[in-house]
Design a protein around this nucleic acid. Sequence first.
DNA 1: TTGAAAGCGCTACCAT
DNA 2: ATGGTAGCGCTTTCAA
Lengths: 335, 335
Amino acid sequence: MAATIKDVADLAGVNPSTVSRVLNNAGLAVKEETRQRIMEAVRILNYKPNAVARSLRTRFTQLLGMVIPDISNPFFSILFKGAEAAASEKGFNIILGNTDDQKAREEALIQELRDRQVDGLILATAQVDGALENMSLEGYPYVFVNRRPRETAGRYVVADNIKGAKLAIDHLVALGHTRIAHISGPLYTDVGLARLEGYRLALKDHGLPFSFENVVESEHNEEAGYWSALELFRKSPEVTAIFAANDPIAIGVMTAVYERGLEIPGDISLVGYNDLPVVSKLRPPLTSVRLPLFEMGYKAAEMLIKIISGEPLEQDGIVLEPRLMVRESTARMKG
Amino acid sequence: MAATIKDVADLAGVNPSTVSRVLNNAGLAVKEETRQRIMEAVRILNYKPNAVARSLRTRFTQLLGMVIPDISNPFFSILFKGAEAAASEKGFNIILGNTDDQKAREEALIQELRDRQVDGLILATAQVDGALENMSLEGYPYVFVNRRPRETAGRYVVADNIKGAKLAIDHLVALGHTRIAHISGPLYTDVGLARLEGYRLALKDHGLPFSFENVVESEHNEEAGYWSALELFRKSPEVTAIFAANDPIAIGVMTAVYERGLEIPGDISLVGYNDLPVVSKLRPPLTSVRLPLFEMGYKAAEMLIKIISGEPLEQDGIVLEPRLMVRESTARMKG
DNA sequence: TTGAAAGCGCTACCAT
DNA sequence: ATGGTAGCGCTTTCAA
């Protein structure tokens, strides 16, 4: 049986409250000699405070909940790493829950975590609503990461998707491309919409026409990317560059391009988004927009802990800058 | 403020202990009418038991700790997913800690998790010792996954590395290769040793000579794989097939092979290990030994929960079977 | 079938 | 500077 605070108090010949004072209130009045005796007893008994008992009393668990669609996706696992790094610096740990992108699981998980009395939630998931309204209503601390809630209020840490899309298009235009297509993500998501918007704005900036002929809406995965590329070739066979809304889509596009007997970047320049580790290993290595994922996770946890601690926030949201990783899938326009 | 069991009891006009009985001991004697009244009160107040208070009383947190070197490595994140799936089925959640392969962080983390009173630990990390001895001494529940402890006692869930290596070599031999090299992992790890042993045994099975000329010891990463391949080419330029101890090593080998102006699989057949998602995207897609990672994580959590619940275990360890995913990096011997 | 009460280990308030 | 004590919310034993 592990030693309790009472054991320490008995051994040191003091009251448990004194032990607690020594251990917790660094700046509080305790005679040096008493402190010594107590620390010695702690050492002898190898005493570790019981976090559960402390939590019950203080009403803080020093535990964060993080809800993620798919931890095996490096995108999210790097977010988690960032969050964990910040949390651990402040003495917090994180309960991680994977939703497999299922809304029911997501809501159940949020409830589960709250019942466990986690001090706050980091939400990296797509759709939250019912559970969320309760949360904001009751003033429960939570922070969105990689997603900026539209309807619901809430703090967030995101990357600038409009800027990211512009980086991609600027690059392609600089290489001489004018017929640039976009395979967008789902347009019911803020991410999908923002990247499309960035694409549109960048074309406009460069005096290039925007046309829905050159846009195909896709899901955020490889297979959907493949089929969307086929559809694009049907609609607009003359494009010379494609900006894909994320890397898996871009990988699907690659397959479709090769099937058509075309070369990358010889015939088609291709840009992805997120810069997952895998894309630098592709042939050719993919040019992609990199998000500061670790930093996003870090800042989200940091922000959440500030909210929990009642520290004032300078801002409700943090928007981080993406940057373009240029690789071999993009090249100067032929001719 | 959230409702407590006392609020429910008051509303239902009963004692808190009766509420507790209704909520927890499904099979216990409670008059149907009372139960109804209580459930109604629970509903009205939207009562959720406070897990912290319950944990303090029952001495179980229904929380598992999982220690992982690097969650952004898909190898580990899939292990985690499996563990989380099993845990969540049994009403457990998992606190995940990332160690970045740093021993100090690892030990601190284990201590942290124990102080939090997690009911048990799943250890996917490389080196644990000091902290571990305490754990086994005090009968604290823990399970190793993907690693079978040598010196320390302990339950484990691993894949059969000797078998996996044999699968790789059998395949290469079947393709007509006889000069098969092995770039091994670190030989101070059980994983590295076991794969080397499988390589040696398989050669013997096929009546092929084993020689240290054809073995280079490497670290488990891409760069080390690259340098090890260079060393191999120096020692044994005539090899026609290479079995790499894991996928990152194999990727490093690829780079070295291409630099030498050789083709895969034309000149050199190459087999990796772990079958990370990325390897099917390489050019050529890599033949690799696949481990049932999700299942390993699942079984590890399941085993741990059994230990926690005091259920008897049929066995101290579970060894799962790998299988070979044949792709285009291996081909029949020329000539 | 239900109630009363103790107590898990800790902190924080109030005394002294 | 330190001790005493109440109580966080729950479960569980004992009694009725």
